[in-house]
């Protein structure tokens, strides 16, 4: 399986990459870790005339904390997320999620920015980003804009990112100490996309839910924020019964496509189950 012919460019700076993008226009695709794009090119589902490889741009790498915000360079790999002491200490949900992505070899190459900007509803970072209230930095020749994860995912392989933009950074507000969290993912085997998955962050104070975020993977054309389920839990004590009710509300918004992982009814049921499991685990992990 060999891709169609293309020209290859390896710019050393975001500035140079933006220049190439402006010059080559629609013919060009950005190459991040290459573990979604290259398989698509080998199967000739994607046939770009030019590849702009972001792999040599040092400024797109790294994880740091600044004024209560975690800033992750878009070309940071999944294994770098997993091994990050900063994330293990302050944002363990991202570590838990990254550990469930594909397999070790893929995680050495696959990047957080590629996973998000690809717009595949089967990817895991989009739901994690919704649960963490993240935002994305998009740069073009005209300047930079910061867009929230909530609203970024428009449709399957479709996001708010414009063809002349590069995602440079992911910004995550440091979760408050004691925030409970969980990414519950059902998959058939290592390397598979989720049959269904749920990302949860949860804060409990004085015995009641102070805040909660629930986001779902691969049960619709985009990742889904389960707003009604969140609203049903806020301000009240979290009980087994309220978790079941919230999972039911999350299931109401599911619109999965049937495939070899199951039919729509099964996937919807699994989205409910993952929501319940993620809420239970987040409750155990949450400070009071």
């Amino acid at each position: 399986m060999i891709p169609r012919e293309f020209e290859y460019h390896a710019p050393k700076s975001v500035q140079d990459a933006l220049g190439l993008l402006a010059q080559l226009g629609d013919e060009a695709k950005l190459l991040a870790g290459g573990h979604s794009l290259l398989p698509m090119m080998k199967m000739r589902f994607a046939q770009p005339g030019h590849l702009i490889d972001l792999g040599r741009i040092a400024e797109l790498k790294g994880i740091r904390e600044e004024n209560g915000t975690i800033r992750v360079g878009a070309m940071t790999t999944e294994n770098e997320l997993i091994w990050s002491k900063l994330l293990q200490d302050k944002c363990p949900l991202l570590v838990e999620g990254a550990r469930l992505i594909s397999d070790p070899q893929v995680r050495y190459k696959g990047t957080i920015g590629g996973d998000i900007s690809h717009g595949d509803p089967g990817n895991d970072h989009p739901a994690l980003m919704l649960a963490l209230g993240a935002s994305f930095v998009l740069r073009s020749a005209a300047g930079e804009r910061v867009v929230p994860a909530d609203g970024f995912f428009v449709g399957t392989y479709d996001t708010l990112m414009k063809p002349d933009e590069i995602m440079t950074e992911i910004r995550i507000p440091v979760p408050a100490p004691g925030t409970g969290y969980c990414y519950a993912k059902l998959k058939r085997k290592v390397g598979d996309f989720a049959t269904a998955a749920a990302a949860v962050t949860l804060r409990i104070r004085g015995g009641a839910v102070q805040d909660v975020a629930i986001a779902l993977t691969n049960v619709g054309p985009t990742p889904l924020k389960a707003r009604a389920a969140e609203d049903s839990l806020r301000g009240k004590p979290l009980s087994d019964a309220s978790i079941v009710a919230a999972a039911g509300l999350a299931m109401n918004i599911c619109d999965p496509a049937a495939d070899q992982r199951g039919d729509a009814e099964y996937k919807t049921a699994m989205a409910g189950e993952m929501t319940q499991r993620a809420l239970h685990t987040a409750r155990e992990r949450a400070g009071r």
Partner: peptide, 22 residues
């Protein structure tokens, strides 16, 4: 297709599937 790992090589300290690297 990036699944089996038979083509794994060590590239700059990373295990990679050489069927999915240019």
């Amino acid at each position: 297709t990036t699944h089996c790992g038979a083509c794994t090589v060590d590239l700059d300290g990373m295990s990679v599937k050489s069927c999915t690297v240019l």
